[in-house]
Design a protein around this nucleic acid. Structure first.
Length: 527
RNA sequence: GGGCCGUUAGCUCAGUCGGUAGAGCAACGCCCUUUUAAGGCGUGGGUCGUUGGUUCGAAUCCAACACGGCUCACCA
């Protein structure tokens, strides 16, 4: 026996590492969190799903796991996001905790809550169910009073630790806590003294000057670099990944790790660094201030939930990748389908088995809920967009036209249709959009020979389409060109023009047979 | 300045227990009487950034260097 991982998937390797470093435990706590100071974008989502995948890996090893997600809604509101209305109104709330900023968009109880809700609603769609912890509630309830007291008691230790990675030392009168003013709600305060227990004396720029008891007041909190390790200890966190901005030498993970051990007497969690997500085919970079953020909701418009999971499960966390809205979307769907086919086909030999295991693991982790026991209905997304255009986005009709969809496959397929249609409408190149003409469409001005082509085509469609094989029908279509001694490069654009009002379109023969004789006759009869 | 990541086919990348160099796209070719956007099959193509080291054997491990990117040194 050895400790060799059964799987070489990064989530399984991470899970093994957690067990190895934290020992065999009754319960493992995996954590993630973010400040809801703006739209939670897909870059932030990477952390959540990284934890989810690791949690699943641990559970697959039979472990009991708690997945906590911290909403840091007691952080200071420091910048009005550019994409928000009522900028001046919002600016009045700067330096107050985010939980006190009103929501001018949806009328939620607070701006923080609005951002939180948008994500909380969506996570179940991608199969993620964390236990949410709201930091404002924890702080206001004085749950961290002892944690803050510990920080104050270790003021010098913490200062030394932080100074280790600062360019200028913290001043002598620095305190490891921050206070929101009980009168004006802002953090424009200065801590003046601490009584050695729970009493903190502060003054505020607004003129307020008072001493509060951390056990009874909702106004005191820890600054980030101390807050983080305090909560690791408080919740007993075993695993928490972090973005590369936290993971440099001297970054917050670095100092938090020190503080966690020396002040809170708890080993820092196992971690890894994840890279950022770029956005492609939509323009702009993803940064809250630049306003180019892409939310999970927007990604879900174009990608099926399992394909979003696939994207993250199939990429190592420490490498950067793009969420694409351009033609890459087609490729990603195809990659997913290929992975799915692999999962449902038995490997033939040992060498293939190794590859298969890796693919299969990615497929499993990509699933929102249980892994399907039979192969889902596969249809090339490119073809699907054509069908959707033909049926003008009527998904039920598209599925009906396929004819061989099992009831158990319908739900997933519908979702794929919806995503494909959204993509077609909102992101795809113009080539991917067309609509079938009908008896009311504008008539083409045609030469006598062109009219003859359309008439012959009409006759072929009328007499044969649907009655002979597509191959036979194809021969007949090409025969028209031959008979009239016309190049297909001349004939086809004419047909496309008559049928969809464009110079080109999907491969003609199969396209015509998909449209079917009924619709085609209506168009061609008029020539 | 510190740290992290990357450098493999024309392009995008996979290859993480060291064991004959891989995929997709592109190119080229073939098939379905068929280049107009949905098919199938095949072919070509790489001194694996550079130099050195460990090893029977290195894309893979180690060291140095080059180039590229990100990040920290304010705050969260």
């Amino acid at each position: 026996m050895n400790n060799r991982p059964k799987s070489t998937h990064w989530a399984d390797i991470t899970a093994e590492k957690i067990i190895r470093e934290k020992g065999d435990k009754e319960l493992y706590t995996c954590a993630s969190g973010i400040t809801p100071s703006g739209t939670v974008h897909v870059g932030n989502f990477r952390e959540i799903i990284s934890v989810d995948l690791t949690v699943r890996a641990l559970r697959d090893m039979g472990k009991n796991v708690r997945f906590i997600y911290s909403w840091d809604n007691y952080d200071v509101f420091r910048k009005v996001p550019k994409d928000m209305p009522k900028q001046e109104e919002m600016a009045k709330y700067l330096r107050k905790p985010i939980v006190l900023v009103p929501d001018f968009l949806d009328g939620e109880e607070s701006y923080a809550r609005a951002n939180e809700k948008r994500l909380e609603k969506l996570l179940p769609e991608v199969g993620i169910y964390p236990q949410y912890i709201y930091q404002a509630q924890k702080y206001r309830n004085s749950d961290y009073a002892d944690g803050m007291k510990t920080a104050l008691q270790n003021r010098d230790v913490i200062r030394r630790e932080l100074n280790g990675s600062r360019t200028s030392d913290l001043p002598d009168d620095w305190w490891p806590i921050s206070v929101f003013c009980s009168q004006c709600d802002k953090d424009t305060t200065t801590v003046l003294d601490w009584d050695g227990e729970y009493g903190v004396h502060y003054s505020c720029e607004c003129g307020n000057d008072e001493t509060v008891d951390m056990r009874k007041t909702p106004w005191v909190k820890l600054p980030w670099r101390i807050d983080w390790p305090m909560r690791w200890a408080y919740e007993g966190v075993d695993f928490e990944p972090a973005g590369k901005d936290h993971h440099s030498d001297g970054g917050s993970f670095d100092t938090a790790k020190l503080t966690c051990k020396e002040v809170y007497n708890h080993e820092a969690p196992v971690t890894f660094q994840y890279d950022f997500i770029a956005v492609k085919g939509r323009g702009g970079k993803m940064s809250s201030s630049a306003g180019g953020v892409v939310s999970l909701a927007e990604v879900l418009e174009v990608y099926q939930p399992e394909i979003i999971r696939f994207l993250f499960a199939g990429t190592r966390p420490n490498s950067e990748f793009s969420i694409s809205f351009d033609l890459d979307v087609l490729k990603i769907y195809e990659d997913y389908d290929k992975c799915e086919r692999t999962y449902f086909s038995k490997p033939e030999n040992d060498k293939q088995m190794k590859k298969w295991e890796k693919e299969a693991r990615i497929y499993e982790l990509s699933q929102v809920a249980e892994v399907p026991t039979e192969m889902p209905y596969q249809i090339q997304i490119r073809h699907l967009t054509s069908l959707l255009n033909i049926y003008a986005g009527d998904i039920d009709k598209v599925i009906e036209s396929l004819g061989d969809v099992k009831p158990s496959q319908i739900e997933r397929l519908k979702r794929r249709c919806q995503c494909a249609w959204n993509w077609c409408r909102d992101f795809a190149p113009e080539d991917f959009r067309f609509s079938i003409n009908d008896e009311n469409s504008e008539l083409l001005e045609v030469t006598d020979q062109e009219r003859l082509v359309l008439q012959k085509l009409n006759k072929v469609v009328d007499e044969n389409l649907g009655k002979v094989t597509e191959k036979e029908f194809g021969v007949m279509v090409y025969d028209i060109a031959r008979e009239l001694e016309m190049e297909t490069t001349v004939m086809f654009p004419l047909v496309y023009k008559a049928v969809i009002g464009k110079d080109n379109g999907p491969r003609l023969v199969s396209f015509l047979s998909t449209i079917g004789p009924y619709k085609l006759r209506k168009i061609l009869n008029r020539y």
